[in-house]
Write a protein that binds this DNA or RNA. Structure first.
Lengths: 236, 236
DNA sequence: CTATGTCAACTAACATGTTAGTCTACTAGA
DNA sequence: TCTAGTAGACTAACATGTTAGTTGACATAG
């Protein structure tokens, strides 16, 4: 049982974010949790955060309420708040929900896509190829995220991206532990290309299957990880 | 432009709910909004709610923050909070998201179902048949909700039901305006039966299609409604 | 040495006071 | 009469004070 506090120095100043104080505190905390600068089990102290960020407890409370709602922290009423442990159950569920949304999206986009959207997808994938060639992993990661965001954007449903992000936050956090695997970028790129090909052909079923295969590559790698870092996981 | 306040008398006392004060206030307000006792465009006044429910502004603020997150109210910073208007865009998006989750769920359940789960589904559908026979619309509505909740529960993913509910809150609210249509209960029952049959046969594709057809019946009826009650809708 | 009961310290939850941004209504000018 | 500017009232957002529930350490009994 870790009884450690969070390392408050790993919290970015709220000046780096936009919106209301509550929103900025929320973003700062979320970033620290997702990037594992706040480790699972660490106690989140409102007082410390207020002091560090120079705000009162109100916006911090609202931020923590949201994080709790997303399952990134566990609140014990009248007692304490801790950074949530990883849970294979949560990750599996997040993967399922994410897949459901992502498959429905790509199928719809394959049906309804415009030529302009097709051009944007092509451009993104060609960018990915360049980044792989250069060995720019960080850049590739970002282009990867953009690829998926782009598909969701093309559905015309603005909340979709937010919902997809929310349901798979635990998965996102787990991904942070995954080191770049040799050759994986190349495979990822090919999988993305297969999705784009199916969208180009306006073949919803093929697009679904290509995306399903692509997404299916993640879970086994996370499961392998759970073996290596049991300290971060919680059976409950 | 309606400038009316909400009718505070239509708010149930928080004694009727469980959990923290914030949670109870949230449930009370959500109920009033979903049941259209609070009409779109009405101004939600914190002061009035505090007075009526006998709590301070803190729990009310947290409740409103959650409702805002779900899109049931629109908050104008430093100014006012209003009950959100209906929006066909939101409803269409909610329908899409709900369908994505529901189809993935029913397909999974069709694959993995146990005999015990099958028995529960059969029992529910038989109950529905009885309620239709008796013309008990309220009871049928509830059994309908339970049917869908049951399928999601059988996936083994506990958050699924919550997420599905959240993304389709606008749809739920719109459904409240739909009066029971003669003969529709019978059709609904048949559609549910088709889903159960496919699950019984452990045929994921058939289950998906049966569910897709079933869910597809709702949207046209809501669109018809938008014509009749333009006062509740907002183009934006 | 282990189990159990008590108590003090700490925290989330709640209440209330304060600030600053927005809307509206009124006024003045065209 | 209509527009534009302005001031005042009102509200959400934020700060701070208060309450009550949980936890965990320590002592005491078995």
């Amino acid at each position: 049982m870790t009884n450690t506090d969070i390392d408050i120095t790993n919290l970015r100043e709220i000046g780096a974010f936009e919106g209301s104080l509550a929103q900025r505190v929320y973003l700062a905390l979320q970033e620290a949790i997702l990037s594992l600068q706040f480790l699972p089990g660490a106690v989140v102290r409102k007082g410390l955060i207020c002091e560090k960020l120079g705000v009162s407890r109100s916006p911090v409370s609202e931020a923590i309420a949201r994080l709790s709602n997303e399952g990134l922290v566990d609140v014990v009423p009248q007692s304490a708040t801790r950074v949530a442990y990883f849970s294979m159950d949560d990750i599996r569920e997040g993967t399922f929900l994410r897949e459901a949304l992502e498959l429905a999206s790509v199928a719809k986009v394959a049906r309804d896509r415009t030529d302009d959207q097709m051009a944007q997808l092509n451009r993104n994938v060609r960018l990915q190829a360049l980044l792989v060639e250069d060995g720019d992993f960080a850049g590739f990661y970002q282009a990867d995220e953009e690829f998926h965001a782009m598909l969701m954007h093309f559905t015309g449903y603005p909340r979709l991206k937010t919902v997809a992000r929310m349901v798979s936050l635990q998965v996102t956090r787990a991904r942070m532990l995954l080191l770049p695997t040799p050759g994986r970028s190349n495979e990822t790129l090919e999988e993305h290309q297969a999705v784009v090909d199916a969208v180009r052909d306006q073949d919803p079923d093929a697009a679904r299957e290509a995306m399903r295969y692509h997404l299916g590559q993640l879970m086994p790698r996370i499961e392998a990880l759970a073996e290596k870092r049991p300290d971060l996981f919680q059976s409950r």
